[in-house]
């Protein structure tokens, strides 16, 4: 009987041990919560690469230590992987910078035709500086509200009566065609009136007649208030307008006319500009005075 009770007690104790075993395990082992900051622009992002460990319970079994050891191995692997990734990212950045430098060098070489010449590179830099100065000058001379443009008048034009297109009946001439052929001596005109957003350009055109062998002259310049222009006008320096109108017959970008329009800061008005929109500024000689 005693023997029977002892074996029963042993069996009961074993049963209890098995039942309560899970409650002696750590309650949480979370992977993926150990973090370090990565700077991304102005924001600091936090990237999780591993976790902290929380243990509860008083009896830590060998299996638990196995888990902890495995977890630390995982953390180690995660750190190694993260460091490897960081290394790769830095490698990519260094490579990108090198490519960028090479590209700039090549571009300079390409446009100058001399890959190694520092003189040529200096020339390009000078040109860029000059271009920047020119842009600054243009910005100063442009109406900051964007509401006024300038036009140089021919002697036969009377601003008190308005300004009229040279050939309003020539409807078939496209904006791009007007820009491309407008500077040619034999151009028969179109329904568009050329104006410029830049006073600098207007002054240049008023003093040197490109349509008459660059002869010196002193033509009148008028300022046009676009808010009083009743017809449609097209700011050809606007990329969206360029995309729509400064294209060839197949709808492809037409780089040459875009460059022409940008250089002259061109804005075209359809058919006529009413007298109310025109203010006579005078001749360059008068403006200097």
């Amino acid at each position: 009987m005693k023997k029977y009770h002892l074996s029963g007690i042993i069996a009961l104790l074993m049963f209890i041990s098995i039942c309560f075993f899970p409650f002696f395990q750590p309650t949480s082992i979370k992977a993926g919560e150990l973090s370090f900051p990565i700077y991304s622009g102005e924001n600091v992002e936090t990237t999780y690469i591993a976790s902290t460990v929380t243990t509860t319970g008083t009896d830590i079994e060998e299996t638990f230590w196995d888990s902890v050891t495995e977890w630390f191995d995982d953390v180690g692997e995660n750190i190694d992987t993260a460091l490897e990734s960081i290394k790769e990212v830095f490698g990519a950045i260094v490579s990108y910078i090198s490519e960028l430098i090479t590209t700039v060098d090549n571009a300079i070489g390409l446009f100058t035709g001399n890959d190694d010449s520092t003189d040529e590179i200096d020339d390009v830099n000078d040109t860029l500086d000059q271009a920047k100065d020119t842009i600054d000058e243009i910005d100063i001379s442009e109406d900051t509200t964007g509401n006024s443009v300038y036009r140089v008048l021919r002697e036969d034009e009377d601003p008190t009566k308005g300004i009229f297109a040279k050939a309003p009946e020539r409807e078939h001439i496209t904006i791009a065609g007007h820009v491309n052929n407008g500077g040619k001596k034999n151009f028969k005109g179109s329904k568009y009136i050329s104006t410029t957003k830049s006073l600098e350009v207007a002054l240049k055109n008023a003093t040197s007649n490109i349509m008459d062998k660059g002869s010196t002259h002193d033509l009148r310049i008028v300022k046009i208030d676009l808010s009083k222009v009743t017809n449609t006008y097209y700011d050809l320096t606007n990329p969206k307008i360029q995309e729509k109108y400064l294209v060839n017959s197949k709808g492809e970008p037409w780089e040459k006319v875009r460059r022409y329009a940008n250089a002259s800061r061109e804005l075209l008005v359809e058919y006529e500009i009413p007298a109310a929109a025109i203010k006579l500024l005078g001749r360059p000689s008068e403006l200097q005075e």
Binding site: F111, G183, N205, S208, K256, R259, Y260, A263
Partner: peptide
Amino acid sequence: IAVLEQSELNLLVDLRTG
């Protein structure tokens, strides 16, 4: 070809703008 295109544009734009 890109060099030719850019050079042509530089040549023509300068002439057109006086």
